[in-house]
């Protein structure tokens, strides 16, 4: 990155023969900026290394085939949580993606921003995106787990909580992708007599798919790592069986990790780190996919 450094001094070099004379304050300033970057990078490095070093010893077949056990932590696994995560997040995607994309299409392509209720929806989505995740747990606890829906602490309740949590993220990402499609494409389509929906379906969505996919994957990866709302909707029970449906009791990986942490027993630490390692690998894979999608299919208009 010394290129930037020389770029800064280039004009001076052309005029001043003494290249060794340097601006001390600038050097200090650039060093501080570098230090900030370095501190963050070192922290990330430390986190990842600790996880790998502490978890790799228990990264074995038992981890994904066995249920957690308080009696024999050395051979216990987190299979119910893995299955639970796949089930809960899968259903979350089925709920949140269609709703979020539909809402984004409405806000971006149909809604008149001068109408007060459209502005209210807009403000509302921005705010929801920053509401603490645990609040979504309270919402689902109050309406879904308990009356009126009374589903109880089951996988579907968890999916609903996560879906509502990532809904604003999906909406915002989809709107940005739609907004990136140039005005001329809309005009061209409407000018030959296409209806609004035909324009959306045949022109805008195909053009926006890479962006929507990227945003959706990132939103789902947030759902994969989320624990707080699920604590309120019943994922904390110490589950030793594999959930078998939407109305089964369940747990997910992050909540399982939380449970292990609550146990505060030395014997659980390697198992917990192994579970964390597995979770991080899943998340890295999701993030990597999103970045590749974004770079490969980014459309230049």
């Amino acid at each position: 990155m010394t290129a930037t450094d020389t770029a800064r001094t280039t004009p001076a070099r052309a005029l001043t023969p003494d290249r060794r004379r340097r601006d001390v304050a600038s050097t200090v300033f650039v060093s501080v900026l570098w230090a900030c970057l370095l501190v963050a990078a070192l922290f990330l490095f430390y986190v990842l290394i600790t996880i790998v070093v502490s978890g790799v010893s228990r990264l074995d077949a038992n981890l994904i085939t066995q249920a957690p056990s308080t009696i024999r932590p050395a051979t216990a696994g987190v299979q119910p949580a893995i299955v639970g995560t796949l089930l809960v997040v899968g259903v979350t995607a089925l709920i949140a993606l269609p709703l979020g994309i539909a809402a984004a299409i409405y806000l971006e392509e149909y809604a008149d921003p001068r109408r007060w209720f459209n502005r209210a929806i807009e403000l509302n989505v921005q705010n929801l995106a920053a509401v603490p995740s645990i609040i979504f747990g309270i919402l689902v606890l109050a309406f879904v787990v308990r009356a009126p829906l009374n589903f109880g602490a089951v996988a579907l309740s968890g999916s609903i909580a996560l879906a509502l949590l990532i809904l604003p993220v999906v909406i915002i990402a989809t709107r940005e992708s739609l907004r990136a499609v140039p005005r001329e494409i809309r005009d061209g389509s409407l000018a030959v007599g296409a209806t609004r929906w035909q324009t959306v379906w045949r022109q805008l969505l195909p053009a926006a798919v890479p962006g929507i996919a990227t945003g959706s994957i990132l939103a789902l990866s947030r759902a994969v790592g989320e624990a707080a709302p699920l604590i309120l909707v019943g994922a904390t029970t110490f589950i030793t069986f594999t959930p078998d449906g939407l109305f089964s009791r369940y747990t997910v990986m992050p909540v399982q990790i939380f449970n292990f942490a609550l146990q505060s027993r030395e014997a659980f630490i390697p198992l917990t780190y192994a579970a964390i390692l597995l979770l991080i690998v899943i998340l890295l894979a999701l993030n990597g996919t999103a970045i590749v999608l974004r770079n490969r299919f980014a459309r230049r208009w």
């Binding site: 539909a102 809402a103 409405y106 989505v125 509401v131 919402l139 809904l167 929906w197």
Partner: peptide, 28 residues
């Protein structure tokens, strides 16, 4: 008719986000 149904469905999806906020407030 299809256009109108689709627009209503899309608007309903957008309106759901308001319902979520209302739900949060009621629940709390």
């Amino acid at each position: 008719v299809g256009e109108k149904i689709i627009e209503s469905l899309l608007a309903a999806a957008a309106g759901l986000s308001v319902l979520v906020t209302v739900g949060i407030i009621v629940a709390l």
